[in-house]
């Protein structure tokens, strides 16, 4: 050893611990990362948000414009061009009936996004109403509603959705109802928790003392406070609803065959895969994956801005 030992005589404790990573940090600091790492993470988050936004915009354009421009080609059945691989004439190839898959998948994307938006809106409104009521009124009503939420959650969503669709036969409305009726519970829980945390704030005491009725307190103080959370969970629900719709349609329980949703396309074409036509499944699926990733990326970015302390533990 060339270096002289420092003044402290107990040398056994001056080990290499302190030299790694420039000194000791508390657990919280280590979890939070260094400032430089945090800046890099913020940059990545911004990039993710930007990319998601651009991607979603492109997909929306495709979903809106392509079926409109190429309607004739898309619906046209061309038995001379069955199961053609991707080519300049048919970017996504053709399916077993000779439909142009790009046009058909774009139309499917449109239907899927429409269903997803309707589901997200319906379940958010329902969930926010139930959650706000449970949180604001409390007592036995709260317990009753929350046990209802537990009951809905206890049944597998897809199974419950299948039952609901089977009751109404396959149609757009039935699919929306079946997805919305099984997914309002998350929103209800979030809104109830938010309302409960607001309930004991002194400004509500002040409002009560000022003569505000229950409905007024709910309308003026509680609902505006939960809107960001509820809107966020609605956006988070979008990709999930797309998947649900696709799953139902794939099982033949969702949309009627004349509405080309992504699930319908995948369900119809699964036999073609066995004939080696990979593009029939892979390319519409890629569209679905892109749409889901873009939506959840956007939602994650929004969540980071609104609720920084719950940074992105994001479920797809």
């Amino acid at each position: 050893m060339a270096d002289p030992v420092p003044e402290t005589t107990d040398t056994d404790n001056t080990d290499t611990d302190t030299d790694i990573g420039g000194g000791w940090h508390s657990a919280a600091r280590r979890r939070a990362g260094t400032p430089r790492r945090a800046a890099a993470a913020a940059g990545r988050a911004r990039l993710r948000g930007g990319v998601s936004l651009v991607l979603l915009g492109l997909l929306a354009l495709v979903a809106l414009l392509v079926p409109w421009l190429g309607d004739a080609a898309g619906q046209q059945v061309d038995y001379a061009a069955v199961l053609r691989p991707p080519s300049p004439a048919h970017p996504f190839g053709t399916d077993g009936s000779g439909h142009d898959l790009f046009v058909r998948a774009s139309a499917g994307l449109r239907v899927s996004l429409l269903v997803a938006t309707a589901c997200a809106l319906a379940s958010t409104v329902l969930g926010a109403a139930v959650g706000a009521l449970a949180g604001a009124v409390g007592g036995w009503l709260d317990r009753l509603l929350m046990r209802l939420v537990d009951t809905v959650n206890a049944v597998p969503h897809l199974l419950l959705g299948i039952v609901i669709v089977a009751l109404f036969r396959g149609s757009l409305g039935a699919v929306v109802v079946s997805i919305a009726a099984t997914h309002w519970t998350t929103v209800a829980r979030i809104v109830r928790a938010e309302v409960l945390s607001l309930r004991s704030r002194p400004f509500l005491d002040a409002a009560i003392s000022g003569g505000s009725s229950r409905a007024r307190v709910l309308r003026r103080h509680l609902l505006p406070a939960v809107v960001p959370q509820a809107a966020l969970s609605a956006v988070l629900l979008l990709p999930h609803a797309v998947w649900h719709e696709t799953a139902l349609s794939f099982l033949g329980l969702g949309l009627p065959p004349h509405l080309p949703s992504l699930g319908n396309i995948l369900g119809e074409s699964r036999r073609a895969v066995l004939l080696g036509a990979w593009w029939v499944v892979a390319l519409p699926s890629a569209l679905l994956v892109l749409a889901t990733l873009a939506t959840s990326g956007l939602a994650a970015g929004w969540r980071d801005r609104l609720v920084p302390r719950r940074r992105s533990e994001l479920a797809l």
């Binding site: 704030r201 002194p202 400004f203 005491d205 009560i208 003392s209 000022g210 003569g211 003026r220």
Partner: peptide, 21 residues
């Protein structure tokens, strides 16, 4: 409500007793 508004109240912490919105 008529009874509630008969008794006005001012709390200790103004920051917490108004809606931030």
């Amino acid at each position: 409500a008529s009874l509630r508004t008969r008794v006005g109240v001012v709390f200790q912490q103004p920051r917490l007793s108004v809606d931030p919105r």
